[in-house]
Amino acid sequence: MKKIAVCYKWVLNDADIRVNEKSRELDLEKSKPQINEYDRNGLETGVKLKALFPEAELVGVTCGPDVEPSTKDALSRGPDTVYFLNDAALAEADSTTTSKVLAGIVRHLGNVDVVICSEGSSDVYAQQNGPRLAALLGYPSVSYVSAVSVDGDVLTLDRKLEQGTETVTVKAPVVISVSPDVCDAPIPSVKQILGAKKKPAHALTLADAGLSADAVKPLITVNSVKAPLSSRKAVNLGEDVPEAVAKLVKQLAGEGLL
């Protein structure tokens, strides 16, 4: 195994997104971008794979409208290098476009044995990029991977499905999409953070990915993004604990829930 690529997304930290009570619109001002939490498990899967093939190159891959600031963070999590494609045209990219760009980057890299994606991203959670990428590259797709082992260029993978676990074998090259339980994603150490600047990050253009500006034009028109109105009553039962508990029990008993 010579080259392993891990795709990651630079997404807003949804913990800091607020909803404007009146307009129901999202207030993104306090939210900073971060590496999609699911992708941190993907990056660590890459690190673990590389540990078995020390001579292999581990490459981080990302694209988006403003992804350059992600590279050091990504490099601190293990890759030897990052290839990023920054283009304002990708601001409204959906999986159709994103997977084309990622496929273009993987082709540009050449000879990638394993492409690792995570199960989804914390913003849209579409869960499409891995299988789409596989189809575009003509690689086999193995999704929902919860365990990885390798013998030469044959991967044995556990897939966690609704019915249970399916164990498959597949020969590289392959695209795998990993679930968060595939491995823990450690917090990078100070050494890893400071070491990131010694590793290269390469900027790519759409042309490098073999794409024209037309090819990444958004297919989808966004009509609105609004927080749904909660249908829940949010009744505050008060701060006096015994009194609040009494009210609650009465209420639940009334609804036939006790």
Binding site: Y125, V222, K226, A227
Partner: peptide
């Protein structure tokens, strides 16, 4: 579709 795990709903149109 949902955004941010249900924090918002995105309404989209597409020609395809």
């Amino acid at each position: 579709t949902m955004l941010y795990g249900g924090l918002a709903v995105k309404s989209s149109s597409v020609s395809a």
